[in-house]
Simulated scan of single mutants.
Amino acid sequence: MSISLYDAFVPSCQQILGGLNGLIDKGEAHVKEHGLEDAELIEAKLAEDMWTLPWHVRACWMHSAYTFGQMKGGEFTPDFTDVPNSWGSMRAMTGDALSTLDALTPGEVEALADKTIGFVLGGKRLMEFTGQNFLLSFNQPNFYFHATTFYDILRMKGVTLSKRDFLGTPRVLTA
């Protein structure tokens, strides 16, 4: 059985974005339960030269939903604007990503598989990919990195989480 590009990318992003929503909820609940300021978690980083929680949500949005609009034009330029600044705005961004992915059809994704996609940063075209390689070797690893880092920051700050919280709802067989 072969797997489509859509099946290799979109459902897994949807699953992890669902988990990310749960992580956002648990982070907010932790702050309230422990009488902390939101900034205690929202501004946390794993290392000084890394991003804070909201940036990781933005990156998950960028490497999932935003990607498809960019790919249609043949170039991907990261969007570092509109970084969420609250639990609610982080949830809104993951909600937007989920809505965008929900609206994609397998045919739309498959149509991008062989398209040449240029990665543009600072006005310079730094790399070129096929659409398939762009999704699977650039966006997917970046998406998972940022989702994992969000989880790791919460764990580092004492939020009680398990691997299941990260995974969201797996696509299991139903009777």
Score class of each variant (00 low, 15 high):
S4Q: 12
L5D: 10
A8M: 15
A8G: 10
A8K: 12
A8P: 14
F9L: 07
P11C: 03
S12N: 10
S12M: 15
C13W: 10
C13S: 09
Q14K: 15
Q14H: 08
Q15Y: 05
L17H: 03
G18D: 05
G18K: 04
G18P: 09
G19Q: 12
G19K: 08
G22Q: 14
L23K: 11
I24G: 00
I24H: 01
K26R: 11
G27S: 03
E28R: 13
E28C: 02
A29E: 13
V31K: 07
V31I: 13
E33A: 10
E33V: 07
H34I: 09
G35H: 04
L36W: 14
E37C: 03
D38I: 04
E40W: 12
L41A: 08
L41C: 06
L41R: 01
I42D: 00
I42F: 14
E43Q: 09
E43Y: 12
A44S: 15
K45I: 07
K45H: 09
A47Y: 14
A47R: 07
M50Y: 14
T52S: 12
C60V: 07
C60G: 06
H63T: 13
Q70I: 04
Q70R: 04
M71I: 02
K72A: 05
K72P: 08
G73F: 02
E75M: 00
F76N: 00
F76T: 01
D79T: 01
T81M: 06
T81C: 08
V83Q: 06
V83G: 02
P84V: 09
W87K: 03
G88Y: 08
M90T: 01
M90Y: 07
M90G: 06
R91N: 08
A92C: 05
T94M: 11
A97F: 07
S99N: 15
S99I: 14
T100E: 11
L101Q: 04
L101E: 01
L101P: 15
T105I: 09
P106F: 09
V109M: 06
E110V: 15
A111E: 13
A113E: 12
D114G: 15
D114V: 08
K115D: 00
I117M: 05
V120S: 02
V120Y: 01
L121P: 06
G123F: 14
K124C: 01
E128V: 11
F129K: 00
T130K: 05
T130F: 10
Q132N: 11
N133R: 07
N133P: 09
F134G: 03
F134V: 03
L136Q: 02
L136Y: 00
S137N: 10
S137P: 02
Q140H: 08
N142G: 13
N142P: 10
N142V: 10
F143L: 15
F143E: 04
F143G: 13
F145N: 10
A147N: 02
A147R: 05
T148S: 15
T148A: 15
F150Y: 14
K157V: 13
K157G: 15
G158K: 01
S162V: 10
R164A: 06
R164F: 07
F166H: 00
L167A: 03
G168M: 11
G168R: 07
P170H: 00
P170W: 04
L173G: 03
L173S: 00
T174G: 00
